[in-house]
Nucleic acid binder design. Structure first.
Lengths: 215, 215, 215, 215
DNA sequence: AATGAATGAGGGTTCATTCAT
DNA sequence: GATGAATGAACCCTCATTCAT
């Protein structure tokens, strides 16, 4: 990007830091309320109890505040804080637990994820950002698939990376449909049932043998 | 929608029909070039070799032209024209063929599908439109899954609708990633390899027995 | 006015005359429906069952059709067709009868009069037109006031022209308020009561003696 | 009215107040010069020495500035500041004085009143506004007529409200004709002569006896 | 640091009028 | 004569960004 007319260094004073935080919080509120495109800087500033001009003390433009807001969410998604699983050897249980953790993270960040999705379809830079997040998931899951194959627990004929992409996408999209898309039947299925169903498809797809499924 | 000040009847003359077609074609070109949001009506008119005002003879606004453009694509996706399969009893072959057909349709409409996705994330009406298209896929696939279960060929413990959603989403997203997302590795895998991989995961997930897989 | 690019002679054929009449009638309908400013030539043409272009065969622009429509009304107002009065010597009765006739004419043309008023406040040429109509009333009434003064029946200290203007305006405005302005109490008073009241004020103002009032 | 996307609060700073005032003044100038319909917001802004956008800092649209401008005038008309009358018991003198005051107010605001009239014939909301002003006059005068009747000084057979409407309209219209309509003979009669004539007709119409006329 | 007024480019839309068929 | 498509000037309004205080 071109060098900005005004630099935007981290705030020097403690008060400055607090003000900046207020702006980020306000931005999140506004973005969740009206989406990225319809969010006006005036609204964000007002929500933060600041004037228009002050916004520019902390951020050069809308994009940058959004980046700040988005980062919070990205982290929560990538490290959702999974519960412990009793038997580490029970592949199915592990898969289900991590899917469940992911679903919960989506649920927590539903509104903002919707906005992120919008932004990704509007601004190439953010498209790249989400792509990287996805990539991270793909790599991670590909690694564990390859691992299972190595241990003779998964269909060796599957390409790990393609499989990872497909299954990750599957979980991601279903989650999106349930928590973020238009509210429809989402209540007819509990999050646990969802996790169970997805986990079963995941392990089926990999042809995980029943003996490694805690049966 | 409120009734517009100016009606927009179908063109009365052959010339009118031609012009309208030119406009739709021009719109498609512009949308594919710069996306929905950045497309200006002036650009579309100019691309069609018309003046600004002429646009309004045929469409009340950007949304409506886009709807006209989108419809063409939607139809192609829903009825991609699948090749014949030698053995109708070979479930895997059937699945693979229809996935391949879908992938080809995506490939044909790649640029526009990307725009559709953008629009769906920006305008609720189009969100609804894409939702309906997805729904159609879900229903269709759920029916065939239930059918396979009834014939004892698919894991009976799977919920047909959830499974359909998950697998449809899987195929849809992977296709999107390959043809529409940022151009990356998409050439390292051929469309046929992709179809093969996805089909395998699909049948694996349903636990289709090998005897119904033409092996 | 500048010489028009296309002349607009009276239609040559009988069919032409009929078409022109249809246009005028349609214009009246549209003007009464939406007023002058909001009337679009397309609407008028359509209402007449013609195409936009055809309009210009008969009128050079909106103003001219309106002039044609307005003329009809102007005549009705100026020559409302008054009933016979039993005793020509009863000044009050004569005044009341002509006021009543005027009120009826207003009532008949209410919608269009409202539009005329609008137009008079928007286009100087039509302002002049209404002014001339008013002037005609003023002169006419001034003459009859002067006549009454000459016969010793009216307050001789009144200036005939000023008095005429004032009283004519009085009747005109009250009529406007009752028939054309926003519909309010207009039903609580019958047109005859209105005529009676106005006539009384008119003769009072002129100090017509009771002996010339049929008492 | 629907809540606007942008609020328009009273200016927060002294400078803001000054600018707003400048804008109102400029609007008045432009409205008086070209009328309501032909006034373009750009003109108003430019007249105020501001850019287009600045207009919207203070008003959401043309209508609202006009409302601001109109209010000033309305007040002046309703409270024209009447001179003292020597003998309060001299009904004629009182009537004449208040008519004179009204005429002066009209004279002061002539150009703008013409525009107000135009606007009232174009926008229902302003029609209502002027209607309310008229109503106020009607009520006020009706009260004083009823009062005179109660004191045996006015023709008891007259309906106070109808009479008030008629006489108020008479004065209003004559004033309009002299100061606001097309400039014609308005100089041949002085404002005082006009007031005298109208007052005489007013008291004549009510049949105020000579003894209550200071004779 | 904060404020809020000022800027102005940019896009959508309307509709009287013209013109080729 | 009739048709209806084509034109394009004209105006409104938004809002990210700058700037004087």
């Amino acid at each position: 990007m071109a060098s900005p007319r005004t630099a935007h260094p981290a705030p020097a004073t403690a008060r400055g830091v607090r003000t900046r935080d207020r702006l980020v919080a306000a931005a999140r509120v506004v973005f969740e309320r009206v989406g990225y495109l319809d969010a006006r800087l005036v609204d964000i500033s007002k929500e933060a109890g600041l004037s228009t001009g002050s916004f520019y003390t902390y951020f050069p433009n809308k994009k940058e505040v959004f980046a700040a807001v988005a980062e919070m969410t990205q982290n929560d998604l990538l490290h959702p804080g999974m519960e412990r699983v009793a038997d580490e050897g029970d592949v199915h249980a592990v898969v289900e637990a991590s899917i469940r953790a992911y679903l919960h993270a989506c649920h927590r960040n539903a509104r903002l994820l919707a906005v992120l999705e919008q932004v990704a379809h509007v601004d190439p830079d953010f498209r790249e950002l989400t792509r990287q997040r996805d990539e991270e998931f793909f790599r991670r899951n590909a690694r564990s698939i390859a691992d299972l194959q190595a241990r003779g627990l998964a269909d060796a004929s599957l390409d790990p990376m393609l499989t990872s992409k497909a299954l990750s996408a599957m979980v991601g999209r279903v989650a999106y449909g349930y928590f973020i898309g238009p509210v429809t039947e989402q209540d007819s299925v509990t999050m646990d049932q969802l996790a169970a169903g997805l986990a079963r498809m995941w392990t089926n797809a990999l042809r995980i043998p029943d003996r490694a499924r805690g049966r």
